[in-house]
Amino acid sequence: MKSFRRLVNPYLVWAALMIVLPMLIIVFYAFSEQGNDVIPVKLTFDNFVRFFSDSIFIEVLGRSLKLAVVTTIICILLGYPAAYFIAQMAPDSQAVMVLMVTLPQLINMLVRTYAWRGLLLETPFSPEVKVYIGMVYNFLPYMILQIYTSLSKMDPSLVTAAHDLGCDEKMAFLKVTLPLSIPGIISGITLVFLPAVSSFFIPKLLGGGSYVLVGNLIENYFVTTGDWNFGSAISLIMALVILVSMYFTRKFDYDKEAV
């Protein structure tokens, strides 16, 4: 059976070329700039200096983080009760509800966002509110499904035991159900926060040109301006910010478990 090991080898080459190399090229572009005919490329930190010395870029980064954080919080606040109530239903209804939450998700994201554009066209909402509606709409199903999965795995006799031991409804929820559903919330956060930071077509379609996020900046520098070096630097900064925030979310999860 050891001979099956060799099956992996071609993929090692493929993954090196198609997954690892592209990341290295981004790093290379981020730390370099287009030179002249004599020296075609020059290594430099300028792209990062440029980003952090301009308050507009910092503002855009801050706005993207805020959008992602607020979207995630709204999704937890709206999604948790929904997941909890679905988990309380009869098994057959639960299956139907899960199917109903899944169905809109399978419809192309662009198509769904385009629908909201028409729906919100003549509403008095500000571009910011429209973007928030679109974001919550797109990401809420992920949150509901993750929390629902962790709730439905829970042993219902635990809650009964809590009642027998003198907890009222509220105490049983706070002391038993909620802590046990934290893993679901954490994976929900991963599925919402991560793509929310980098989203660029929802703000573009629903916010018009007035609501610029990091994703839009990257798009502009790659597609419109053609300044790939600066665009790569922005993506690197964004990837780093996401990595750091995910690290803290996970750490929070472990700390909770330790208690």
Partner: peptide, 16 residues
């Protein structure tokens, strides 16, 4: 590619 934002994977491939 699963943890990176899509846009990073995307520009990586584009640059490649």
């Amino acid at each position: 590619p699963m943890l990176n934002p899509d846009i990073v994977t995307a520009i990586g491939l584009m640059l490649l």
